[in-house]
């Protein structure tokens, strides 16, 4: 898929990872973590901060704002210090620099609230290579799909993330 500006870095080993689910990660939602997420986005709706309001509005506890699917349980023995998820798992680009290309989260309609634990597993969905005119380097575009399942075994959300990786200019 690479064009004449650069050589492909996609190997058969990488292609073989497409569709293969990685190990499970457990993410927790607590009242404190929901408040921190809501605060960081800038929500002013008390439903995210005050449990009495959340109960009045029909939630078991503080609801997760859109985009919040729990915080991976941190363990220095196995967690990535920058992103918090499992270290060294899943697809790794040969390029050192990574940008986020897009996010797509679809909810099944099952409530996601403080007190939930969500198990997630990610599979690489596709790999694509393109020349970036803006950065002047080749880019590797990897789409991954993650399914989130709550403590009752219900799928609550599916997210698709696009990772764009590229080399340092001049490398």
């Amino acid at each position: 898929m690479a064009d004449d500006k650069f050589e492909s870095v996609v190997t058969d080993e990488m292609r073989a990872m497409i569709g293969v689910k990685g190990p499970e990660t457990i993410g927790e939602l607590t009242t404190t973590s929901v408040r921190m997420f809501a605060r960081s986005v800038g929500y002013v709706d008390p439903v995210f901060y005050d449990e009495a309001v959340a109960h009045e509005r029909g939630y078991r506890s503080l609801p997760a704002p859109p985009g919040y699917l729990g915080t991976p349980i941190f363990n220095p023995a196995e967690s990535d210090p920058t992103f918090g998820g499992r270290r060294g798992q899943g697809f790794r680009s040969p390029y050192p620099l990574v940008l986020n290309g897009g996010t797509d989260i679809e909810y099944t309609g099952v409530q996601i609230c403080a007190g939930d634990t969500l198990a997630s597993a990610t599979a690489l969905a596709s790999l694509q290579e393109r020349w970036s005119g803006a950065l002047g380097v080749p880019m590797l575009i990897a789409v991954s799909e993650t399914t989130y399942t709550n403590q009752h075994g219900q799928v609550v959300a599916i997210s698709r993330g696009t990772g764009i990786s590229y080399p340092k200019a001049g490398d």
Binding site: V41, P66, G67
Partner: peptide
């Protein structure tokens, strides 16, 4: 700005 924060801003718009 984090990409996911912009996604969350759009989530708040829809919320």
């Amino acid at each position: 700005v984090h990409g996911a924060l912009k996604h969350a801003f759009l989530g708040e718009l829809l919320w």
